[in-house]
């Protein structure tokens, strides 16, 4: 579209878009403009992007092999050779932190990819169809909601075998019910609006109405909820790691890094503290991002 005499900004902000694509990009640009005005949210977004880039580029940025042990140089203070010191087996903490980000953030992304569509579909179907389907789906949801997340995840992992995959499955198993609840609540209000009645009048099937008309209205609040939930997923993943139920040694994972180093918290405090800071920063960044997204996406807050 650069061949038009308009600037890109004018093209996006025009009141008379000429194609579906232009209208959609224009809407996105307006959302982005609103989002950009929120300093904290931008800080959150930049931090999240930075964490992801650092994790993806771990092999390039790491100064050491994260699994190489050097028992002669264990629990070293941060220095030029080991920027963030070494752990109890003499491994470079900085490199392990980078590679650990891949595991921890990877788990979070995997959980979200599993959970959000599942919760969305269950909630929208329950809310739109109503009746017996609603009751059955919601009782199942309630059963999962009734267990504390960490305990259910622990039981699940313990029943299978500890590892990253089962940790992801366990967290996913416990994380979807709130999304289903949220999507159902949204759907219940959307279902009775005139614009859904208008689509029903066109003769569209129930599935088509849910997928093309109801789900897009739920996505906004779901995205907000997901980003706000990211931090708690990180913490659950870390807690599972800490309890030895998540990533298994020698694989670096932020939670298990703290777990193995907790004995040294008094004498060599930096060893467990540094992955702790990483978890804290990641959680905070996701939370700020979620808050900002809510301001932009959630129409009820406006």
């Amino acid at each position: 579209m650069s061949d038009t005499p308009l600037s890109l900004r004018d093209w996006l902000l025009t009141d008379t878009p000429e194609s579906r694509r232009q209208a959609a990009w224009g809407r996105l640009y307006r959302l982005w403009r609103d989002f950009r005005g929120n300093g904290l949210a931008m800080a959150g977004l930049i931090t999240v992007i930075l964490l992801i880039v650092l994790s993806l580029a771990a092999p390039l940025l790491a100064t050491h092999d994260p699994a190489t042990q050097n028992l002669a140089n264990r629990l070293a203070k941060p220095s030029a050779a080991h920027w963030l010191g070494t752990d109890e087996l003499g491994r470079d903490v900085y490199s392990r932190l980078l590679f650990g980000g891949r595991v921890t953030l990877g788990m979070v992304v995997a959980v979200v990819l599993l959970v959000a569509p599942l919760g969305l579909v269950i909630g929208c179907v329950a809310g739109y169809v109503g009746g017996a389907a609603d009751r059955i789906l919601m009782r199942v949801t309630d059963v999962f909601l009734a267990f504390p997340r960490l305990i259910l995840a622990l039981a699940f992992v313990a029943a299978i075998k500890p590892g990253v995959t089962s940790a992801i499955a366990a967290i996913a198993l416990t994380a979807w019910p709130p999304y289903a609840r949220l999507a159902r609540a949204e759907t219940l209000t959307i279902r009775n609006t005139d614009y859904i009645a208008a689509v029903r009048i066109t003769g569209a099937s129930g599935l088509r109405i849910i997928l093309r008309h109801v789900v897009p209205m739920c996505i906004g609040s779901l995205v907000v909820r997901v980003t706000l939930d990211m931090s708690s997923i990180i913490l659950t993943a870390a807690a599972l790691g800490f309890l030895g139920m998540g990533a298994q040694p020698p694989s670096p994972e932020w939670g298990s890094m703290i777990a193995t180093a907790r004995r040294f918290i008094l004498e060599q405090w930096w060893v467990p503290t540094i992955p702790g800071i990483a978890i804290f920063v990641a959680s905070l960044a996701f939370n700020l991002l979620g808050d900002g997204l809510r301001d932009v996406l959630d129409p009820k807050q406006r």
């Binding site: 878009p17 579906r20 209208a23 609006t193 005139d194 614009y195 009645a197 208008a198 689509v199 066109t202 003769g203 569209a204 088509r208 093309r212 008309h213 897009p216 209205m217 129409p299």
Partner: peptide, 25 residues
């Protein structure tokens, strides 16, 4: 419908609203 503010899907362009009946049928 009565309320033109409520009977159009807020996230869909006019084009999309008008093409929906055509796609359905």
């Amino acid at each position: 419908f009565q309320d033109p503010y409520g009977s159009l899907h807020p996230r869909q362009t006019v084009d999309r609203a008008l093409s929906e009946p055509l796609l359905v049928h």
